[in-house]
């Protein structure tokens, strides 16, 4: 699917956070990177329909405002940066809620099967009947990732999905996202702080800084020492391994933030 943003702007209580964002993305993994408070989460929320920005968001040549609500809900899903809840629900029920738009009074066979499938391929079947609040941080994150995948979205928006995940889960998550994005022709946008993951798995990188898009393009064209220095304020060593994947090694901070 094609996604296009034209002059997206957003302010929280007249405090501008996004200024005239423009981009075009098509059917692949885009990593959204940038320092804290750059506006990554805000941009994702605007694309997810959680916030209503000025400007227009175009999906497959159609403005989202003209799309049918039903269609829109079905086609995109969003994973928040921190999904905290004190709800007293089992993991199974939490996953069902990922399909809340189509649930009727009695839960259908299809929906039960969808939950069972997502539990299985994410390897969390044994958590199914546990209370969501009795899980570890990483387990909880896996459940919410599963919830965002259950609708088979065409547009997948994930805000720091690796939060709380161990190395194995991080790696497998990205392998999996890469696979489904390719197979299903999805557009996946992931806000990330791990530049090495971004360099390794993203087809496209968008760098945000102070509510604007600083630069965008392929990992090798965007992740340069110059960009990293001006956006993050650090010196980094960038090398290319034998598979052609970039490795970014942070060296030192150019201008200190901490005053210790």
């Amino acid at each position: 699917m094609k996604l296009e943003a034209n002059d997206l702007s957003f302010s929280y209580n007249s405090h501008p956070v996004l200024n005239d964002i423009n981009f075009k993305i098509e059917s692949r993994i885009t990593a959204l990177i940038g320092p804290n408070a750059a506006g990554k989460s805000t941009l994702l929320k605007c694309m997810a329909g959680v916030l209503e920005p000025d400007g227009s968001l175009i999906i497959n040549e159609k403005d989202v405002k003209d799309l049918k609500k039903e269609e829109l809900i079905r086609s995109r899903s969003y994973l928040p940066q921190d999904s905290k809840t004190n709800a007293c629900l089992s993991v199974f029920e939490t996953l069902l809620l990922g399909m809340v738009h189509s649930l009727s009074w009695k839960v259908g066979e299809e929906e039960i099967e969808a939950v069972s499938n997502v539990l299985e391929y994410m390897g969390i079947e044994d958590l199914a009947m546990k209370n969501i609040n009795e899980l570890s941080g990483g387990q909880k994150q896996m459940v919410f990732i599963a919830q965002s995948l259950i609708r088979n979205p065409q547009l997948l928006l994930m805000d720091e999905p690796t939060n709380g995940l161990d190395l194995q889960h991080q790696l497998e998550l990205f392998e999996f996202i890469q696979k489904i994005t390719k197979e299903k022709g999805m557009t996946t946008i992931i806000a990330l702080h791990d530049l090495n993951l971004a360099a390794r798995y993203a087809d496209n990188i968008v760098v945000m800084s102070k509510g604007m898009i600083h630069s965008s393009g392929s990992p090798s064209s965007v992740l340069t020492q110059k960009t990293i220095q001006s956006v993050y304020g650090i010196n980094a060593d960038i090398s290319v391994d034998t598979d052609g994947i970039l490795w970014i090694k942070p060296l030192n901070s150019v201008r200190k933030v901490f005053r210790s």
């Binding site: 929320k45 997810a48 329909g49 959680v50 609500k69 829109l72 809900i73 995109r76 899903s77 969003y78 928040p80 999904s83 905290k84 809840t85 709800a87 629900l89 029920e93 939490t94 809620l97 990922g98 809340v100 738009h101 649930l103 009074w105």
Partner: peptide, 20 residues
């Protein structure tokens, strides 16, 4: 609205993104 109300327990943002 029972399902929507159940989903509301996951937080406003999540609920909004689920189309509520």
């Amino acid at each position: 609205d029972f399902w929507k109300l159940t989903a509301l327990r996951l937080g406003d943002e999540k609920a909004k993104s689920l189309g509520i």
